[in-house]
């Protein structure tokens, strides 16, 4: 019972982290058609901001959390303004190469201005405690992560359903030019998408820092790669698909680790990708592909 509950929570918290990052990727892709591979460096920027503010200003965790969120939103908006706005009308490949370029530049900036070695920032470690709920030992960080992700997705859903800008963003995912023909400014819609993406990166950064206690130049790369796979699995451009893909990957990772014998532990990641490949055989466009990809009537 204890073991099963722990593994369930493991799967939920892994899935939550992937979902947070995947939705950040998907919201930008749905509007701009841009796979923002620099998203991982936005997460790392949050980590470095935490390290700097934690050392120079204050170690207060609440202030640091605010600093991480503000840093991630700001750098995300800055990247949109400086790097991605100029290639918005260009071919999709140009956007992809720009994202890779921005990612490499930022990683090297972190190497030059910071260090290739991990820089310690342990102020969020307190989030990770062992709690006893009934007979079950669970990690408080995993509970925070799961609950925060669910709350963030609910708020995002409310925003997209209820506000003018949210409705415009959903409309833009279908026909961006028509949204502009309704008088809604393209820059505003795209900047909002990047701000939301940055905010979600900031939330993910807080949980990653709570788990790692240190920041490195490449810390965002692996989670973003996994989130990218989650997006593909769920159906690229679909926000519910990104959430679903994230949680499926979380459950797959934990499930494979639990089911595989210890001697085959090294094959865990290969087994996960095998299942992902089989799922994509079944649904080549992802599980929840937006309807446009399948052809609407006019």
């Amino acid at each position: 019972m204890d073991y099963a509950a722990q593994q369930l929570l493991n799967a939920l918290s892994f899935g939550a982290e992937y979902a947070l990052i995947a939705v950040g990727l998907a919201i930008v892709f749905s509007i701009m058609g841009l796979v923002n591979f620099a998203h991982g460096e936005v997460i790392a920027f949050g980590g470095y901001s935490m390290a700097v503010v934690g050392t120079v200003v204050t170690g207060n965790p609440l202030v640091l959390m605010a600093a991480v969120l503000i840093a991630c939103v700001s750098v995300s908006l800055l990247l949109e303004r400086v790097a991605f706005r100029t290639v918005r009308k260009a071919d999709i490949t140009t956007g992809l190469l720009t994202a890779f370029g921005v990612s490499i530049i930022l990683q090297n900036l972190y190497l030059l201005l910071g260090s290739p070695r991990p820089i310690s920032a342990t102020q969020f470690i307190f989030l990770d405690r062992t709690l006893l709920i009934g007979p079950v030992h669970v990690s408080s960080l995993q509970i925070y992560e799961t609950v925060t992700t669910i709350a963030a997705i609910l708020f995002l859903t409310l925003f997209l359903k209820r506000s003018y800008l949210g409705i415009a963003m959903r409309a833009a995912s279908r026909d961006f030019q028509m949204v502009r023909l309704c008088g809604i400014r393209a820059n505003r819609v795209v900047a909002t998408a990047f701000a939301i993406s940055g905010l979600l990166a900031g939330l993910a950064c807080i949980f990653i820092m709570a788990r790692r206690g240190s920041v490195t130049p490449h810390m965002g790369f692996d989670p973003v790669l996994t989130a990218f796979i989650a997006c593909v699995l769920g159906g690229f451009g679909s926000l519910p698909g990104a959430v679903l893909g994230g949680f499926i990957l979380g459950f797959l990772e934990v499930g494979v680790l639990v089911l595989l014998p210890q001697t085959a532990g090294g094959l865990a990641q290969a087994a996960v990708f095998l299942v992902v490949a089989l799922l994509l055989f079944w649904r080549p466009d992802g599980i929840l592909t937006p309807a446009t990809e399948k052809g609407d009537k006019l």
Binding site: Y164, I167, A168, R170, A171, S173, R174, D175, M178, V179, C182, G183, I184, P290, A291, T292, D296, L298
Partner: peptide, 21 residues
């Protein structure tokens, strides 16, 4: 031409888009 309604929005939301400004 081709109407270009927002197929993923409801009828009401499409109309709200018309009045967005």
């Amino acid at each position: 031409e081709g109407r270009r309604i927002f197929a993923n929005l409801t009828v009401f939301e499409n109309l709200r888009m018309g009045a967005a400004t």
